[in-house]
């Protein structure tokens, strides 16, 4: 029983630490902003959610303390992490950050042109 409880704590924490380190490596290795935002929003969110679930199981199984704030934190990070990455890359596209030179298609550019023409910006 305690082996199972240890496994429930250690396995999510190890997976989460692995994903967070992979996020940091992706942030220095990827060539442009959009791929870096992809790495930061998805993999960091999954890593932090795994670490928090491991901590939640530790306090629940070993210290007999059910803590709903950690579950609320997991839910909040699950909602806001991808939203933050999406909205940051969208605003930086509108602000004019260029994608990597190897990009082969750009479906957003005609949409942005049409939007700017309709709203009369520039």
């Amino acid at each position: 029983m305690t082996i199972l409880a240890n496994l429930l704590v250690i396995l999510p924490i190890s997976v989460g630490v692995l994903f967070i380190v992979v996020t940091a490596i992706g942030l220095i290795r990827f060539p442009d902003l959009y791929t870096r935002a992809h790495a930061a929003s998805k993999s960091a969110t999954l890593g932090v959610m795994s670490v928090l679930i491991g901590v939640f199981f530790h306090f629940w199984l070993f210290e007999n303390h059910f803590n709903p704030r950690i579950l609320l934190g997991v839910l909040f990070l699950f909602i806001t992490g991808p939203v933050g990455g999406h909205i940051m890359s969208r605003s930086s596209y509108i602000a004019g950050v260029k994608p990597w030179e190897g990009t082969v298609r750009d479906d957003l550019a005609p949409e942005i042109e049409r939007m700017k023409k309709e709203q009369g910006i520039k």
Partner: peptide
């Protein structure tokens, strides 16, 4: 660019959050 720095700072905040969780254990 500036959005690069903002994304990296967001990731640092998320790392600090999980470090606080481990420290509390």
């Amino acid at each position: 660019s500036m959005p690069d720095r903002a994304i990296a700072l967001d990731t640092i905040g998320v790392n600090l959050l999980s470090a606080i969780a481990i420290v509390s254990i």
